[in-house]
């Protein structure tokens, strides 16, 4: 009865997104992230969109589930994260919810 573990990419792969190619609804000031050692975003984002690449935070807004966890878990959110919902109609489209 082993349940094969799914990766976050596989999980997001079953979701439906209408990605806004023109506007990134969340922007991250990666320079400021350097000074942050706990980097809670890398654990707390349910979509696993905050990763560390070459010692730096890497973030991709495509795949965002629009929960708002990053905006509240980041210790310096006011300065680091510019957070908004995607423009009307764009972003994740839940078919079940």
């Amino acid at each position: 009865m082993a349940v094969a573990k799914m990766s976050v990419e596989q999980l997001l792969g079953v979701d439906k997104f209408l990605v806004d190619d023109d506007v990134a609804h969340i922007k991250v000031d990666k320079e400021l992230c350097r000074a942050c050692s706990p980097k809670p975003c890398t654990y707390a984002c349910p979509a696993g969109l905050y990763t560390i690449k070459d010692g730096e935070i890497s973030f991709d807004y495509a795949g965002c589930l629009e929960c708002g966890t990053c905006r509240v878990v980041c210790p310096n959110a006011d300065k680091v994260i510019t957070w908004a919902y995607p423009r009307g109609g764009f972003g994740v489209q839940f078919r079940y919810g």
Binding site: M6, V14, D15, Y96
Partner: peptide, 9 residues
């Protein structure tokens, strides 16, 4: 079968 993955506060 996993049909959706979602998150919300």
């Amino acid at each position: 079968t996993v049909a959706e993955y979602s998150a919300h506060l």
